[in-house]
Design a protein around this nucleic acid. Sequence first.
DNA 1: CGATCTGTTGATATCCTTCAATTTTGGTGG
DNA 2: CCACCAAAATTGAAGGATATCAACAGATCG
Lengths: 258, 258
Amino acid sequence: MIGDRRRATNPLVAKLSRFGPLSQAEIGVLEMLCSNEEQFRAHVDLLNQGDPPRSPFIVIRGMAYRYRILADGRRQILTFLLPGDFCELHTYLFKAMDHSAATLTPGRLAVIERATITTLIARHPRIGAAIWWCSMQEAAIMRERIVGLGRRSARGRVAYILCELVWRQREVGLAEDHAIRLPLTQTDIADTLGLTPIHVNRVLQQFRREGLITLVQRNLRLHDMERLQDLAELTTDYLHLTGIPSEAARYLDGLERL
Amino acid sequence: MIGDRRRATNPLVAKLSRFGPLSQAEIGVLEMLCSNEEQFRAHVDLLNQGDPPRSPFIVIRGMAYRYRILADGRRQILTFLLPGDFCELHTYLFKAMDHSAATLTPGRLAVIERATITTLIARHPRIGAAIWWCSMQEAAIMRERIVGLGRRSARGRVAYILCELVWRQREVGLAEDHAIRLPLTQTDIADTLGLTPIHVNRVLQQFRREGLITLVQRNLRLHDMERLQDLAELTTDYLHLTGIPSEAARYLDGLERL
DNA sequence: CGATCTGTTGATATCCTTCAATTTTGGTGG
DNA sequence: CCACCAAAATTGAAGGATATCAACAGATCG
């Protein structure tokens, strides 16, 4: 179905285009950046807490997640990594990872040299700004997670995570309506939302009974986005998916001409 | 007591010195950066959700916090802003704030021009890296918050926040032992940890009964850091307060000489 | 020096967890 | 292609950690 389209456009280009229109030169540079691909199978660790940081990469295809394992073995999932996401760009500044990451599906990563980034940013200030923009989007998603875990009910949290995943997949062209592939088990969702899988199951059942979603064999469809958003008390604005203010764009164009 | 020392060293210099030793030139530039100070009283809003972003600033003195107000009026505190913290450095890339911020105590901020940052980073790559380092430390703190809200008990959460605040104040030279000023009400703590103030109160009482802390009139002292850390399942490593790996330092020195 | 915010305590309620069992799904090898 | 096994999903019953409600005592501040 949409498999072909996935290969067609580079998800990094798709994502950064949201930031602002890219020049042909910039698109070229970004595609070059993604030339060194590595394949990964499902359920493979990419990063391990305690280990020294590894070189930066960009998710090209497939889905992964960052997580922390606690002393008693319980797990907290921190964020999901989707195609177009930059990872570990600056972790070389840390001595050891404070969390792990693993794949959920088979996928491909583009591995990057640290020095490549440095020169890239020096030569293309707009791409540098776009990278900052991505990292701020990431921070915005973390803030939403904190608000959700701190103050939302189980229903609100489940509604939230479904919306987030649909929106983010749309952002990089992996979905065009309100339906996505959801390669998460109910245990994964529980470990993301600070709940038990049993309770996640009951919330999902109820959503189904209320006609809000269908979820069969990892295929998710949101039937009433508006009501789910209400439950999650979330507006799409909060994730800042829509590009930058025109004033900021003018400022960056100025830098470019220097 | 330590009031004099607070004024003596610039907290930004104190913080970035943790990143790595700074040259006299770099210290000079950083002090220049903080020349434009503004005074603030306690319980004053610095940022408002929905508003367009404001210009960047650095906290020089006093304490503030970022928070989100939900539709029903409940509040979730996201992070605390301490002296030496960079704020809103790149929010100009967003159209509107997704959260607010307010002071807890009277304090001073150094307001910065956006363009100043750009040239600063271009001229001093090590300072640019230090700024990235700060923003990654911030992300690490957010991760801890997510883990805490998702998977820790009320006791663990309270233990965690006390440790975090003590460590961060020590980082910028505002405390030398395990005692700090804690300008938070129990309601503030509750809104940070996703609990009710009543329950926070009971946990604090219990900590006192167990001889873990004393907390009188906003003066906090941790008597058994080790046990509190255990309760919080937290190591100081996780916040990456200790500086960068030597390999990374060498890399940055290389950049400097270009 | 009263008004208001903060802290404290007790009783009751509830959302979510825990424990336990069963069914369904998905993957793998014969 | 089916049989088998492990993982995931589902359901029920009971328990617990934290919330809610209510009242009062202390602190703080204009």
